[in-house]
Computed example of a mutant assay.
Amino acid sequence: MDHNIQIERSTNLKSKPDESKLGFGQYYTDHMFILEYTEGQGWHSGRVVPYQNISMDPAAKVFHYGQTVFEGMKAYRTENGIKLFRPKKNFERLNRSNARLSIPQIDEDIAYNGLIELLNVDRDWIPSTEGTSLYIRPFIIATEAALGVNPSQNYLFMIIMSPVGAYYAEGVNPVKIHVESEYVRAVAGGVGEAKTAGNYAAGLNAQEQAKEHGYSQVLWLDGVHRRYIEEVGSMNVFFKINGVVHTPMLNGSILDGITRNSVITLLKYWGVPVEERRISVEELVEAHNKGELEEAFGTGTAAVISPIGELSYHGEKFVINNGEIGEISGKVYDTITGIQTGKVEDPFGWVVGLDS
């Protein structure tokens, strides 16, 4: 692989958006990173270029067979410089998704170095207002123009970046979640554990229906028994029941979330009992009715922690912790965001400085 990264700076820089009105994924920085893959040559031609449209053949395989994977991470402006949160874990997971989608493994070092070069070029885009960050979206698409149903021989790996505020309009306030019992997101043996576009497209219908009824997201059940908890929309999910924190175990259809892993590590570090296991929706209902369902929250890069204040299942509503953020949810959120922004000690070595 060619490890040289060329840099072409834009001559038409954009105006920076108002940091108090960023929303999520609405604005994009001046530059992007591109790396190409050609069968027989491997990954090559890494470069930082002005943010721009890309031209593709209508027969490109990504359009027809969905051969694409992506990641999500963030950069933060802190008092001690620009910081990233466990970025190499994202590139490790990207390669696990690549393996499932028959996409060639990417050199994680060149992907990481490409990100660092891009961040250095666009570092002025990293916002400084409380609660903001620079969202980073690495992704790979299949570009070979051929309609045969087989893996592409050509790919593009790209990184784009967007200054963002809170993912949910509610911010860190509890959200209402609908337990989805009609549609299925994924099953073990499929691509549920890969971060690929089809997983998210499959959830849009249920998500839109939930929003029509006032719910922020859906809680997915397993695709076989339709009773075991899997994920909340684009997040992993945790429940505190009678003093113990529970989260669905990784089973081949659940994304191995980096925030999920960080939360489990933190809870164990604090001595909080945490279990990774199979959890049924009936168990949640029973725990709620007994007054033992004390907290629930989703975890993910975009929102970090999203407390759940209400669940809806088969027409019944189950309010959790009086619809308020719980003690564990709040502590986890404050600690992870504190570590990310340099305000809280990082005992795990999770934070990486841009210039380190």
Rank of each mutant, 00 (worst) to 15 (best):
F24P: 00
N173K: 15
I160F: 08
T132K: 02
R227P: 01
H246V: 07
A202E: 04
Y27W: 14
L156K: 14
Y183R: 15
A188C: 11
P347H: 12
E310R: 15
Y51I: 02
Y27C: 04
D222I: 06
G131I: 06
A145T: 03
Q209G: 13
V245D: 08
I126E: 08
G203T: 11
S253H: 03
H64A: 10
D222R: 08
I328W: 06
E19Y: 09
L204V: 15
K89V: 11
E19A: 05
N205R: 13
R123D: 14
I140D: 02
L134Q: 10
H44N: 11
F63G: 04
Y313P: 06
G165F: 03
K331P: 00
P127H: 09
N261Q: 12
H178T: 00
G300H: 10
P50H: 02
R96I: 09
Y112P: 02
K16H: 12
W350P: 01
Y183N: 13
H44E: 04
L13G: 09
G214K: 11
G81H: 06
D18G: 03
H288R: 10
G23S: 03
L255A: 02
E295I: 05
D122H: 10
Y269T: 12
E230G: 05
G189Y: 01
S152G: 08
F238I: 01
K74N: 04
Y51E: 00
K240S: 07
P174M: 12
R185T: 00
G23D: 07
P127D: 10
P17V: 06
K343R: 15
F85Y: 09
G72T: 09
F63H: 07
E182W: 12
Q6F: 11
K89A: 15
H178V: 00
E282H: 13
G66A: 15
G25M: 07
N95G: 08
K331R: 15
I34C: 06
R226A: 04
A302E: 01
N53Y: 09
I254K: 09
R96L: 14
S133Y: 05
Y27Q: 02
E170Y: 10
E71P: 02
Q153I: 07
M235Q: 07
H246R: 12
S133Q: 04
A206N: 03
H288L: 01
K331F: 10
S45D: 14
K343D: 00
G353F: 12
M249P: 00
W125D: 00
Y269V: 06
I140E: 03
V187G: 13
F24S: 01
E230N: 04
L35F: 09
S97Y: 04
I34S: 09
G203K: 03
F239I: 01
G338R: 01
L101E: 09
I279E: 06
E36A: 10
I7N: 01
E275W: 03
Q6N: 14
